[in-house]
Amino acid sequence: MAPRTDFPPVRACLFDMDGLLLDTEDLYTLCVNLMLDRYGRPQLPWSIKAKLQGRPGPAANQIFQDWAKLPLTHEQYLEELTTFQQKLFPTTKPLPGVVELLTDLDRTGKGEAQGGNRVHIALATSSHAGNFKIKTAHLEELFAVFPQEQRVLGDDTRLQPGRGKPLPDIFLLALKTINDSLPAGETPITPEECLVFEDSVPGVEAGRRAGMRVIWCPHPKLKEELAGREEEVLAGRTGEAGDVDLHQVGELGDGWAEYLLSLESFPYDKYGMVIPQGKTAP
């Protein structure tokens, strides 16, 4: 089909965190492989890891346990895995282009955007509060651009349990937190005015099912794993995220989603975003 080209300017950007803003995917892999090595099991392949990304913890853990068959109870596995994570997660770093992108978007709300509108931002991550704190405590300045009420975490009480990605709820809630914060007189933002940033397949599907545009910026190994299926991913039609109502997702080549190698030199103009020039006064 011909891709759509008449989109309105983007007024809100909704961000996943793990593997998109932070380099946590390789840290997750290292933690899991340390566990597997401890029990004489093979290293985690990307064919399995791809199914874990972006999912709520309980669902991801079940998929992993079904594959790994570790001689542990679920509770024992989590306890041992958490020990490794607590040592490694405080070393997280922003991925290429992240600091510049978040800084630029934050500046649209602090200065005159040369005729453009402010671009609001929110966080929508499957990470629970405990893990979020460990991963971000040393990066407070980076995450300060996200207002507290516009951080939607995996265990957020505003989310219905069991409704994580690839369901659209987390992105719809993130948009609601932005709309609830708009000043009087500013028109509420619609889903098609939102741009979701994701690295995982379930995350892309969640964004598409929310009726939003999507940037897919995956780990190189995930991209390699899905070679030849990129258009399916962008449409939310891989089937990797389980059974879905196909009317809720996109069509191949419909123009609603785009693959990017990294978040460096983001093409703001393409999405109707105007970034103020020069430094914004504090």
Rank of each mutant, 00 (worst) to 15 (best):
A129R: 15
T157E: 15
A144M: 11
D156F: 02
E149I: 11
G130H: 06
T125N: 07
L142K: 13
A124M: 13
Q148W: 03
V152F: 15
Q150K: 15
A129V: 03
L153W: 00
A122H: 10
A137D: 15
F146W: 06
A122Y: 08
L153Q: 01
I134F: 06
A137E: 12
K133W: 03
Q148I: 10
P147Y: 04
V145K: 01
D155M: 15
R151F: 02
R118F: 02
A122C: 11
S126Q: 03
K133M: 03
V152N: 10
R158Q: 14
H138R: 09
I134N: 08
G154A: 07
I121W: 01
Q150V: 09
H128R: 07
L139G: 06
Q148F: 06
A122R: 10
Q150E: 11
A144Y: 00
V145D: 01
F132N: 01
T125E: 02
K135M: 14
T136P: 08
L123G: 04
R158L: 09
V145N: 11
V152C: 15
P161G: 09
K133F: 01
V145I: 09
L153H: 01
A129K: 07
R118E: 05
R158W: 01
A129G: 11
G154N: 03
V152K: 13
L139S: 04
E149V: 09
L142F: 12
